[in-house]
Design a binder for these strands. Structure first.
Length: 245
DNA sequence: AACACATTCAACCGCCATGTA
DNA sequence: CTACATGGCGGTTGAATGTGT
């Protein structure tokens, strides 16, 4: 980087239609990549990152704008429950939508929706718990699905205590340590182990039941929980594998 | 009409991973 | 091995816009 001086020369703020046009023409002529060069050669006084972002989020062909459909929202919610704030992965399953758009939509619409929905669920749960208070020890089902993010999610929300939910768990991404090769999204090396952390040590052969069943039609080749049945080890966690088809 | 407050979303920031010299 | 450039990601900010009073 060429120090502060260069930084102050870089234009910031909202993109004007004329700038969009310049960027679009340049990328269509020269192709994507080398964004530092793009900004220098096209005459745009924008940072390379800014150009890349603008192209990726708005100028790229096949970008879908406008309201999210019910199906899209539903998919986002389900995927978020599985993956947490992995916006680029989620967006990858929504043709024409960008990670930024998905993230914004989540933060402004769906997050609230989930919290509201959850509150309702908790209320009805409390009703039920009243009934089942004494006999739910062994038939306890573990609910969860949040990944390692600090933001609340609608699946197993770090904010929530065990009230309302039977057991609170987090799925935490471990360092890649598996020997299994992953073809997921074309990535051949970064297979990820997910660890479900739970404050409780459930009985052996406990079956994890998620709030929603995975909709395979939605997920297509993306991810599949190979199994929901996990061996509970002596430690306070067990493993769930995400695997390609 | 004017103001305050709330909401939305485009853009930026900082960090991390990867590639290359 | 190290340093640097680049790209990608998630979190955050703040201007624009909408809504209520």
């Amino acid at each position: 980087m060429q120090n502060k001086e260069a930084k102050t020369l870089v234009k910031r703020g909202l993109w004007k239609p004329a700038e969009d046009l310049i960027l679009k023409n340049y990328v269509e002529a020269h192709g994507e990549g080398n964004w530092a060069l793009v900004s220098a050669r096209s005459g745009l006084m924008r940072g390379g990152k800014s150009c890349r972002l603008r192209w990726k989020n708005y100028l790229r062909p096949n970008i879908k704008r406008g309201r999210m459909s019910e199906e899209e929202e539903d998919l986002i919610i389900r995927m978020h429950k599985l993956l947490g704030n992995r916006w680029s992965l989620i967006a990858g399953r929504l043709p024409g939508r960008t990670d930024n758009e998905v993230k914004n939509h989540w933060n402004t619409h769906l997050n609230k929706k989930c919290h509201l929905g959850k509150r309702k669920a908790m209320e009805s749960n409390q009703h039920q718990n009243h009934h089942n208070e004494n006999d739910n020890d062994k038939s306890q089902k573990l609910r969860g699905g949040s990944c390692n993010n600090s933001q609340p999610t609608c699946g197993a929300n770090p904010e929530s205590t065990s009230e309302g939910l039977d057991v609170v768990m987090n799925i935490v991404e471990k360092e890649e340590s598996s020997t299994v090769t992953n073809n997921w999204m074309g990535d051949t090396k970064s297979f990820i182990d997910y660890v479900i952390e739970t404050p409780l040590v459930p009985p052996n052969n406990t079956t994890f039941v998620f709030d929603d069943e995975l909709d395979v039609a939605y997920l297509d080749s993306f991810v599949l929980f190979e199994t929901f049945e996990c061996d509970i080890r002596e430690e306070t966690y067990s493993q769930v594998e995400f695997s390609p088809w």
